[in-house]
Amino acid sequence: MSTTPAGETDRADRSGRARRRLGLAARYGTLLLMLVVMLGPIVWQFLTSIRGRTENVYDGVLPTQPTLDNYVRVAESFPILQYVGNTLVVAVLAVTSNMLFAAMGGYALSRAAWKGREVVFTVLVATLMFPFESVMISMFLTVRGMGLVDTLVGVWLPGAVSVLNIMIMRAAFLAVPKEVEEAAVLDGAGEWTRFTRVFVPSAKGALAVVCITSFMGAWDDFLWPLLVLTDSDHYTLQLGLKTLAGATTVNDQRLVAAGAMAALLPMMLFFFALQRFFFKGVGEGAVKF
């Protein structure tokens, strides 16, 4: 970082090195402190989830009788696998529809000017200004009008394609050079062929971002499923966790912790396995207006 100007004495150089080493130590110290703040609560929850049934939760930091028993018990007393199944139905629908429709919409918006493009674009951007919470009552009425209350389709449909994803795909397609498209036209490729063979393969990074964010969105959403779903058979995982926390019959924090960890750990695996694509794709598809 700090460069030593030429002509300094050896002593000053040595004190500079000492100061740098001190700075590095301070940096690692701060990093470790932040690590405790950021991961501490999660680790504490995890440790609680593997504590034995007979040991006191506060007897030391590490469990004395570590066990996976709590995970088995939570799966036995709560239909957690059913919740996961319901969530996966919504998530798979959301990922598929978002990737397909956002790519198609983004393609249309990125290609040469057509009549009405500016109007459509403005309308799409305008809808980004309405916070979900301020339209959720009307959205609920619309979904109820379609007869989709208390169905997984009703949970999925309003998020089937998000405007933000259309914009991400548009930005990625804008980066495709015109020459590539012209070459494909010369080869006799029609519009759909150009879309599927030329454009989609060149926007893999942005598609990965759409895939990851729509999966995580469906997996993590709480408020909308809370409005739409009433029958606990249809609950998504996040709603199921709420009943787990609120259940007065099981006042056992180990079970709640096991449930929370069962929801978090797959998500962490999913994200950290794909994070290369995520951070790369975010840069590639940076939204430009």
């Binding site: 956002a102 057509w114 309308v123 619309t142 449909l157 879309f195």
Partner: peptide, 30 residues
Amino acid sequence: TGLPHRAWWTPYLFLAPGLVMVVLFGLWPF
């Protein structure tokens, strides 16, 4: 555009699913 094979409605066809959703669950609720 210099590109053939483009009917005036092609962009709308590509945008149709997205537009329907945005109108139903973006504009109309507001």
